[in-house]
């Protein structure tokens, strides 16, 4: 999968602050994607979507435990068919990000506030496409406590 800029939906209100995201999330972690598995799934609305389960290895727990994580999000590729969602980024093996997570199904997690819950990091620990740093996020997340 290609790396996409941090995505969110079209919002009729301001994006949540880092403090708000941290406050509402069950866990906030700096983690890397170990692997991904995509499948078709029908949701409660009857949508037939491709869903990807990403295994994350936690490098740093900013909020909550540092246990390994399985995060599920809409989008992915199955048998050559790719499905994308306008308010979620793609996730690929090896990517590193700050994840704001809420509880999902069967012990898995989902991005809190959709695309706002995944801030991909570049090699210099900046959120991709911004000058926001990992240290900024750590500081702001701690302010939320």
């Amino acid at each position: 999968m290609v790396v996409a800029a941090t995505a969110s939906g079209i919002w009729a209100q301001q994006p949540n602050s880092i403090q708000d995201r941290a406050r509402g999330a069950a866990r906030v972690v700096v983690a890397s994607v170990v692997d991904t598995t995509s499948r078709y799934e029908r949701n409660a609305y009857g949508d037939e979507l491709i869903v990807t389960a990403a295994r994350l290895t936690v490098e740093e727990a900013i909020k909550g435990s540092d246990d390994a994580i399985v995060m599920e999000l809409e989008g992915g590729t199955v048998d050559g068919i790719t499905m994308r969602v306008s308010d979620l980024p793609t996730i690929a093996k090896g990517e590193r990000a700050v994840f704001f997570l809420k509880n999902g199904h069967n012990g898995s997690y989902e991005p809190h506030l959709r695309g706002q819950g995944i801030l991909k990091l570049d090699a210099q620990d900046h959120v991709q496409g911004t000058n926001l740093t990992l240290n900024d996020i750590r500081r702001m997340a701690k302010e939320a406590r």
Partner: peptide
């Protein structure tokens, strides 16, 4: 229904 305060969401599929 609501989805984390988004106003609308586009789903799209592609092949090759």
């Amino acid at each position: 229904a609501s989805k984390d305060a988004a106003a609308a969401t586009t789903y799209w599929w592609s092949n090759n």
